[in-house]
């Protein structure tokens, strides 16, 4: 149970927490924040497992993947915020209406 595995489990924990919050919270801004936490969790899993490389140097490929992921996450978040504000201006409330028919 070295440090890398500790951080990997934390990443998994963050992902599960985000998943729970995503399912429970109704406010759209809270859902977007939950996605950010889930994204950080997934990247932490990736980055922590890269730390297992021998002799104190971490594997650079997952680091590049995480940086790409962070930039993708921030652009998705920015777009989601703009869309949320548009939903609020059209429907008057920052929630998704209840699904009328399945």
């Amino acid at each position: 149970m070295n440090a890398a595995m500790l951080y990997a489990l934390t990443g998994a924990g963050l992902f599960a927490l985000g998943l729970y919050a995503l399912a429970v919270q109704a406010h759209l801004l809270r859902k977007i924040i939950a996605f950010n936490v889930m994204g950080s969790g997934a990247f932490l899993v990736l980055g922590a497992l890269a730390h297992r490389a021998p002799d104190q140097v971490a594997d650079p490929v997952p680091h590049a993947m995480v940086i790409t992921g962070i930039v993708v996450a921030v652009s998705a978040t920015a777009f989601a915020l703009v869309l949320m504000l548009r939903v609020q201006s059209e429907t008057g409330q920052p929630h998704l209406p209840e699904q009328p028919s399945d």
């Binding site: 595995m5 497992l49 490389a53 021998p54 140097v57 594997d59 490929v61």
Partner: peptide
């Protein structure tokens, strides 16, 4: 499930270093 999968991974993995 995720934790079980993670713990089953070897402690030392060079990856593409």
């Amino acid at each position: 499930g995720l934790a079980a999968a993670l713990l089953s991974l070897p402690a030392e993995a060079p990856g593409l270093t």
